[in-house]
Design a protein around this nucleic acid. Structure first.
Lengths: 257, 257
DNA sequence: CAAAATTTGTGCGTATGTATC
DNA sequence: TGATACATACGCACAAATTTT
């Protein structure tokens, strides 16, 4: 077993939170045994070099977050084990990529509105500043757990009723089909990562200090005309992106975790 | 300007660090003016709703980190403004993608070693467990700032002298060429994000609590035979990935930052 | 079935870090 | 600069639930 990375004091991040992140990370790399049971608090305390109270604070945070569950006398157990793999490629779609990894995947529309296109979005969609766009907010679930939170823009002139259709069918692919787009492609995807802000922690049910992966995506129709610009936030501890993989993913080593 | 996200007390992350992260994020979205000057501390204190001491602690941390520089009587200034865009596609290469964004990009070999292939890497490279691999550690720089930290594995049988060649030429593409690989393609890329650990903070010169984007990549030759497996860590506040973009990237809105 | 060992839950005192005023 | 309040972390002790002997 590799030596656990050293904790740092006095850097503005409490030890219990660093440990919570360490445990969360460790779960993916064999910290818990095959039954999902974590080592006892005393052992974790020794391994991390802290007091048992500090371990308990970390576990308490993860339990509150739904990652762990403790039982007096029995131990502490992992609730969810694996990360979802979200494939990104020319034919990226929400449900198609996840349906084989979870029992139930659902994309739900939260709200929609009409906006005057500001500069960057107008440029991305090939509109004039001042043209009207439809903005749609969606939440992606896998087995009841939020795994993505998207904001999408469409040209209102081209897709006037897309919000209504989408709210009924719950699938972007089907909604676009109903608007005359038989097929579309992912033209480009930007990827960033940052700390979750307040809206992330609420909408994705995250712990404060959690990490979100942010993608900015352009979808175009087959003739290359942009049809959709969207910004999506993924919880970094529940989702992993895979680019141009055929769905298979190697379980490579983590390196420094 | 969107309302700044509320700070939270008692969540294991000190206010000054939350603010430091907020400022770091805000720099990318117009917190500083065109000269790179930040609003005065008093104004920041009011905007974040904290005492000026707390703002000073945040600025001090960012200054120590090299992001800001304060001058008595003049103000506080941003040192680096934009994030590097690291393109990922079929023909992903290090220097080619960055050379137009920085004056000097360099990839430097830190060390190399010979390892017996463990399960996941052997599988990824199409080797038998027990076959020998060459492991190469590299650091990517752009204008003197670390922007990537990679660990790569190759089959020793196929590329016996690749470490020596690479350490001389400083380019993976050229090193592979010298070993008979005229061209190669990125077969798949896995993307995750996590907090920086101790080795990240040292090797990439990051602040504790910073975020790293981790990619796990497979490169194959033109006949589809895997030749390289690598794990790369990028500082999330210095680098942004773009997938299958032609290099152009839209400056879309950040949404919740 | 009973006793011992294991493991989580709780209480208290103290020292230090964080944030305000 | 101090004074104050709260959060964080430690150390020790013991209670309660569960498993093992």
């Amino acid at each position: 077993m590799a030596k656990r990375s050293a904790l740092q004091r006095g850097v503005g991040v409490a030890l219990w939170r660093q440990i919570a992140d360490g445990i969360r990370q460790g779960i993916a790399t064999g910290l818990a045994d095959e039954t999902g049971r974590l080592p006892p608090e005393a052992e974790l305390a020794q391994r991390f070099g802290v007091n048992r109270h500090t371990i308990r604070a970390a576990i308490s945070a993860l339990a509150h977050e739904g990652v762990l569950r403790s039982q007096q006398g029995r131990g502490t157990f992992v609730r969810r084990q694996k990360r979802l793999v979200y494939p990104i490629g020319e034919r990226t779609r929400f449900s198609a990529g996840l349906s084989d990894q979870a029992h139930e995947t659902r994309s739900e529309m939260l709200s929609s509105s009409i906006e005057t296109a500001a500069d960057p979005i107008a440029f991305a969609l090939g509109l004039e500043p001042g043209d009207r766009t439809i903005r749609i907010e969606t939440l992606g679930n896998a087995d009841g757990v939020p795994v993505s939170r998207s904001t999408s823009w469409f040209s209102e002139a081209r897709f006037p009723g897309i919000a209504d259709v989408y709210s009924r069918v719950g699938s972007m692919t089907e909604a676009l089909e109903a608007c005359g787009v038989t097929d579309y492609r992912r033209a480009s995807t930007g990827v960033e990562a940052r700390h979750a802000d307040e809206s992330d922690t609420q909408e994705l049910q995250l712990a404060p200090g959690a990490i979100v992966i942010v993608t900015r995506a352009m979808n175009s129709d087959l003739s290359g005309v942009p049809i959709q610009y969207s910004v999506t936030r993924f919880p970094a501890d529940r989702v992993e992106l895979v680019i141009r993989g055929d769905g298979a993913t190697f379980e490579g080593p983590q390196l420094g975790s």
